[in-house]
């Protein structure tokens, strides 16, 4: 579990730094810890092992992330923000997958789906590998869902 959690952190770190021009950190401060979840998106993948990544963002970080990605000033539109959120989750998934089996393994990444924040409970009750990342005044939570037998093997 530790290895994949580290891989999840590295994938998130790289994407928020290189794509979002933010300064992510593994340590979560008080403000970040209390940030309420604002948006959620999932990306499913299939291949030698199937699974899903759930990315949630807490606090006022999505408009900043979107503006940074676009190289624009705030405000950004809701459509741009949703597009940016989907793309970030998609790229995190693509950067994580080579670590699941090996670099030769062929996976199909399915289109990202925006999820209602009110209906996340069912996901949060499922076993997953979780990594929180501090982002300025907000927080990203990345959860990797894999078949139970795969999670047990990795534990």
């Amino acid at each position: 579990m530790k290895r994949l959690q580290t891989d999840l952190f590295k994938a998130g770190l790289r994407v928020f730094e290189d794509l979002g021009f933010l300064l992510p950190s593994a340590e979560i401060n008080e403000e970040q810890a209390q940030a309420q979840t604002q948006v959620a998106v999932t990306v499913e993948f299939s291949g030698p092992v199937g699974g899903m990544i759930l990315l949630t963002l807490g606090g006022p970080i999505l408009p900043v992330l979107t503006a940074n990605m676009l190289g624009d000033e705030l405000p950004t539109t809701e459509a741009q923000e949703i597009d940016a959120l989907k793309e970030v989750c998609n790229v995190i998934c693509g950067n994580l997958l080579p670590n699941l089996i090996n670099e030769d393994a062929v996976f199909d990444i399915h289109p990202p789906q925006v999820r209602s924040v009110k209906n996340l409970e069912s996901f949060l009750q499922m076993p997953s590998i979780h990594q929180a990342i501090g982002l300025e005044e907000g927080r990203a939570d990345i959860r990797l869902f894999l078949p139970e037998e795969f999670l047990k093997r990795e534990a």
């Binding site: 790229v91 693509g94 080579p98 030769d104 393994a105 062929v106 990444i109």
Partner: peptide, 9 residues
């Protein structure tokens, strides 16, 4: 320009 990571592909 893609998130594809499989060296096979």
């Amino acid at each position: 320009v893609s998130t594809e990571s499989s060296t096979t592909r």
